[in-house]
């Protein structure tokens, strides 16, 4: 637990997110009612997924430049943790949609795009599983990773905004002031995003440390 101040920060922020997120005031809105609080939990899942996939993109580039297996291991660990968060984001989104949009899956453009994005990254895991040779696996999956990331950006940030959607702020920019995220909610939402980010990174680094240990052990024989 050395250099662990950010883990402490993560615990504090998430404790605040859970307690403050449930108790602090939120605007009264029809249909949404209290479910608007899901904003503190559902949305940061996707943000964390994007962050972890970006890290893994960075490690893929590092691997391709250096050929160091360590970066390959780190990259795949980031994707594994990112996929965990994407599944959580998808499931929480469907649960929320069931009670506000009426059904868990309404072929909303953002739902479809994020499902596609998840499939692309699941394919990455399957691709890795299919190649025995370590060097080859690392190289091919790093190249695939770069393309997957290049696909994720338009899928999540461009295409859903060009069409009408049930998600707020679509057909436009959902960032910052575009929709009614009032000041009370900001006080929880921003710490929540940071807290979930840190939790995602924590889980991913644990995974990558285990994988690195395994790599070292295999190489020492």
């Amino acid at each position: 637990m050395r250099r662990s101040w950010w883990k402490v920060l993560c615990i504090i922020l998430l404790a605040y997110t859970i307690i403050g997120g449930l108790l602090l005031p939120v605007p009264r809105q029809f249909i949404l009612n209290e479910t608007v609080r899901n904003l503190y939990y559902h949305v940061p899942m996707w943000f964390t997924m994007i962050l972890l996939f970006s890290y893994s993109f960075y490690y893929a580039l590092r691997y391709l430049r250096t050929g160091n297996m360590e970066y390959d291991v780190k990259g795949v660990s980031m994707i594994n943790a990112g996929l965990l968060f994407s599944v959580l984001g998808m499931v929480t989104g469907m649960e929320w949609a069931k009670y506000t949009w009426g059904e868990p899956w309404s072929n909303d453009p953002k739902q479809l795009a994020s499902a596609l994005c998840m499939l692309i990254y699941f394919a990455y895991i399957i691709l890795r599983g299919g190649i025995k040779d370590e060097e080859k696996r690392a190289k091919i999956s790093a190249v695939y990773n770069v393309f997957a990331f290049a696909l994720m950006i338009p899928l999540l940030f461009v295409l859903p905004r060009m069409v009408d959607s049930l998600h707020p702020g679509n057909g436009g920019n959902p960032g910052f002031n575009a929709y009614d995220l009032d000041n009370n909610m900001r006080k929880v939402f921003y710490p929540a995003v940071l807290g979930w980010y840190l939790l995602g990174v924590w889980i991913a680094t644990l995974q990558s440390r285990i994988n690195l240990l395994q790599l070292k052990k295999e190489n020492s024989f």
């Binding site: 637990m1 883990k7 404790a15 924590w202 644990l206 240990l213």
Partner: peptide, 28 residues
């Protein structure tokens, strides 16, 4: 009550993560 339940689950998950972190540090 809901807040308490969620806080308990969160504390459990964090305790698990911290323990895992310590174990990995030891192995390293």
């Amino acid at each position: 009550v809901v807040v308490l339940v969620l806080a308990t689950i969160f504390a459990g998950i964090i305790a698990y993560l911290v323990r895992l972190d310590r174990k990995i540090t030891k192995l390293e």
